[in-house]
Design a protein around this nucleic acid. Structure first.
Lengths: 302, 302
DNA sequence: CCACGTACATGAGCAGCTTTCATAATCATG
DNA sequence: CATGATTATGAAAGCTGCTCATGTACGTGG
């Protein structure tokens, strides 16, 4: 038995039109074509789908069963086609974001909150892409946008610059390093360094400072959440290097000191990687605009 | 955009097979055919449904949306086809019953209880067909079986005999007619007659007795439920004529008397009307068997 | 780095399904 | 019983969708 949507549409049309001739008109075909089609379908089904005893042909019990399927399925198809139309016109789409940078949650949530209101039809999701390689996933269309620091863009991928930030040293006010105007690699030798639980090539403090200087901190411990890291730092259990925008709550507190990395200030750039063809889509462009303007407000507010 | 189930099957197959070539094999067609089809579908959709950057072709975001539709719709189609197979093999079907006879609930429920266990897959329903003409509904396949007393079968309809019964007079033991050995038409002149609220041509007491004798009872009042009629009779508010099988509870009570209609005993036959082609279907035949044997047990138990 | 294998795309040709046209059969009604 | 409405049927045209043959792109191992 090989059913097609065509058949379901036919069943529904005959039911609605209350007769084969009228239904044929609804479907823009001749009465003859419909008659042939119905005959074929009944052949497939192996039974009569219509009662012909009364003249305007009516659905039989089996036909009514098929109508039930039609009434459930065809609206789903219509809904899907509607979504595709919206997708084509650019009013909707999918924005699944992978972040390689733990601290980015801080500015990403406010940005997404704004985005969500502007593009309610877009399917938004975040995947804390720590477990997998985010950039290849972009190519496979498993995700649509990757938040990442500077890297070499693979072919087909564009790195859209968002904003610059300063990886900033933070310690307890009790820590001896609080006396320094800036912090150098050597200063970490005697410190417990608290970081996110990711590989060193994704941690600014290593890529920008320690790896090049071949300095190993006294110890390293990890915490998942920014708040936890700051708590540990506050109780002088260690020091950390975090992007400047997460410092806004801490700067006003007397318990903490924040210092630039030095001697020359380290500046990094945050990027949103997208597929080449997506970069100009209206809602992606809007997201990029938001992701450029909102985080700097946090940085200023710091 | 003209989607067909074929396309949904294709999407699903490519997803499951993880590639176009393997999917083509699954669907028993050449790789070329599938490639053409996918191209056509993407043309319809107006966008790429697959990512071709990585070699085994994968679903794009839009393709994943279509896969979701496929995963919802195709199982429904499979289920329907399964039902049709069962329908063809006679293991299942529909048994929507219309009853023209109020008192028939009494024996119909026990019969359906037995039937339900034997044919759990058959869709059973009762329509208290008092509001509409049941026999034409049979022809239109709105119902599949009509419980009815003797009539002239319309063409295409078979009246399957079930059992014989005696319309029986019932009155309070206080009623003067309790003294009579049998009840004649004339006896109703002074009585309040309690009946179901249906037209006289569906009431045995009229069709078999009063109409022919041109006798009008002193008054007629109606009640929907058999139990209510018996209650009214028990308190001597009137008399009634009911099928013998409903008398079983009443006969043992000293409050009631039951008497045959006379002088010669009136016998009627109950029928189950079905469409000609349905009469031999296994589950219909089984229902008929049950409807022949079970009610007589009630009659004997009376 | 080249040769080869794998995976998908493309074009031409053809078979078969679907539609149309013309007409017949059937049914309901006045 | 004639008439109009509704569905069925058969033949022929047309088009869809398939296969075959071949091309292109990508990755891989010698």
């Amino acid at each position: 038995m090989y059913v097609e949507l065509k058949h379901l549409r036919t069943i529904r049309a005959i039911q609605q039109a209350g007769g084969l001739a009228r239904a044929a008109e609804m479907l823009n075909m001749t009465q003859s074509a419909l008659s042939h089609q119905v005959a074929g379908l009944e052949d497939q089904a192996g039974m009569e789908l219509f009662v012909r005893r009364s003249k305007p042909m009516r659905l039989s019990a089996a036909g009514q069963r098929m109508l039930r399927a039609a009434d459930r399925i065809l609206p789903e198809i219509d809904a899907m086609e509607e979504e595709f139309r919206a997708l084509r016109s650019g009013k909707t789409g999918r924005l699944h974001i992978a972040i390689e940078c733990h601290a980015c949650f801080d500015w990403l949530f406010p940005v997404l909150e704004l985005f969500r209101h502007a593009w309610p039809e877009v399917d938004v999701d975040i995947r804390a892409g720590l477990a997998f390689e985010a950039l290849p996933a972009l190519n496979r269309e498993e995700v649509d946008l990757v938040i990442s620091s500077d890297r070499i863009p693979p072919p087909g991928i564009i790195f859209n610059p968002l904003f610059d930030y300063h990886p900033t040293f933070v310690a307890s006010a009790q820590n001896p390093l609080a006396a320094r105007p800036f912090i150098t690699a050597e200063d970490f030798r005697d410190q417990v360094l608290i970081t996110y639980p990711v590989s060193r090539d994704k941690l600014d403090v290593f890529t920008e400072l320690l790896t090049a200087a071949k300095v190993e901190p006294r110890a390293q411990r990890t915490a998942e959440l920014t708040a936890v890291i700051l708590m540990l730092v506050g109780s002088n259990r260690g020091v950390a290097v975090l992007p400047d925008w997460v410092m806004r709550e801490v700067k006003s507190s007397a318990d903490y000191v924040t210092r630039p990395l030095g001697p020359q200030v380290v500046t990094k750039r945050m990027y949103a990687a997208t597929r080449e063809e997506d970069a100009t889509r209206p809602f992606i462009a809007h997201f990029l605009r938001l992701a450029r303007s909102e985080p700097v407000k946090l940085q200023r507010g710091a």
